[in-house]
Simulated assay, not measured.
Amino acid sequence: MKEFRTYKRSVRERRAFLRFLAFSLSGVLLFVILPFFDVFGRSFTTAVTGRFNGIQNYKTIFNNQAFLLAVKNTLRFTGVCIPLLTITGLLIAVPLSRRKDAGVIKSLYLFPLAMPTATVVIVWKLFFYKQGFLNLYLSRLGEWTGLWGEVHTDYLGGGAAFWVLVFSYIWKNTGYTVVLWLAGILGIPNALLEAAKVDGATGPQCFFRIVLPNLKGSLYTIVILSFLNSFKIYREAYLVAGAYPAKDIYLLQHLFNNWFVNMEFDKMAAAAICVGGFLFLVIMLLQYFWDKKEG
């Protein structure tokens, strides 16, 4: 009898769990999974007639110079930004975790996330254009020191545009990175640190041997979120430089936008499948190495 009651309770719990997930799973199925399979099917057909043409769309995009340039720039942007963002957030979070007013300061770091993208872009334009505040300041500084003349560098039209975009990404996303690092740091039991100090461990030793090893979970979350967010920088780049920006900041999102405007849906579908597969593969690899280290 007792086993029967236990079985009935487990069945009720299982049904409650399924009912709880039903709405979210149906939304994912309707708005994510089914559209993905539709795009996957379209990647093997022509855009106008819908005729099946095999892997021709994939051959076309991998022979497309704009696609190769966008892939290179996007990977470069991701490779530069993720380490910078991760390290910057950690360097801010460690001293911040020792302050009593950490909550107020944390809110200030989250402020960029609340600012509309259009407002941020206007500020960047005022600051980085040829006649912007940065060139004006540098010109005045050169005039005052006598080391150089007037400066008219176009930071948004050349190679410097890439670093302007990197700065924009770091500035906007540092806040949530700091919050995630803080959550991990504050979750470390004080007893571990106090015991280490009693045993004579110095501050750097406590950090590298106790704090960092206990932040692996936070590191994994931050890397995944930063990796995904690095593919969403398009709004800033588009509003600053338009659909055809400087060569160094021509990203995959620009390419998708231009193909969409030109109704080249076959190429866009094939490229979307490739990008989605790449993101999935990277996340699975990160999960594999994470599980391997945990084991």
Rank of each mutant, 00 (worst) to 15 (best):
F31V: 08
T174D: 00
N53P: 00
L281G: 08
V164S: 04
L138E: 02
Y176V: 02
F133N: 04
C81M: 06
I170W: 05
L126E: 05
E3A: 14
A191Y: 13
Y238E: 14
L21S: 10
H254L: 07
A118I: 12
L134E: 03
M263P: 00
V282F: 05
A272S: 15
I92N: 05
L182Q: 01
V198T: 06
W259G: 10
A161H: 04
G295L: 10
N258I: 07
E143S: 15
F265A: 10
M284H: 03
R14N: 15
L281R: 01
R209M: 13
N190K: 13
L108K: 02
V223E: 06
F289T: 08
T117W: 15
L75I: 15
F36Y: 09
W124F: 04
N262H: 12
I273D: 03
S218H: 03
P35A: 03
N73P: 11
R98P: 04
L165C: 07
Y238K: 11
I122S: 11
A102L: 06
P112M: 04
D154F: 06
T78V: 14
D248M: 01
F289E: 06
C274E: 09
R51K: 12
F20W: 12
V166P: 00
S24F: 11
F127S: 01
V32A: 15
S10I: 08
I82Y: 10
L285Q: 04
K267Q: 15
F111A: 14
G157A: 14
L225V: 11
N190T: 15
F62M: 10
T46I: 05
K2E: 10
W148N: 04
L251H: 05
L212Q: 02
V71S: 15
Y234I: 11
V104D: 00
V80H: 07
T78I: 14
T49E: 15
L136I: 03
A195I: 07
L96H: 06
A118F: 09
F17Y: 12
Y58M: 07
T86Q: 03
V211Q: 06
F36L: 04
T45G: 11
A196H: 11
L193G: 08
Y288A: 12
E264M: 14
T119R: 00
D199T: 02
K125G: 05
Y58H: 09
P213V: 12
G41P: 06
I188Q: 01
L286W: 11
L91A: 07
T117H: 12
G146K: 01
T177L: 11
R19M: 14
Y7R: 13
S10P: 00
L141S: 02
F44M: 09
F127E: 01
P189N: 04
L165R: 05
L251K: 11
F227Q: 01
K292G: 00
G217P: 05
E294I: 11
F17L: 13
G54L: 07
W144G: 12
A93T: 09
K125W: 01
F77N: 05
A246F: 02
V121G: 06
S10G: 02
L84G: 09
F52P: 09
I61G: 01
T117F: 13
S97C: 02
R42N: 08
R98W: 10
L108S: 09
F52R: 10
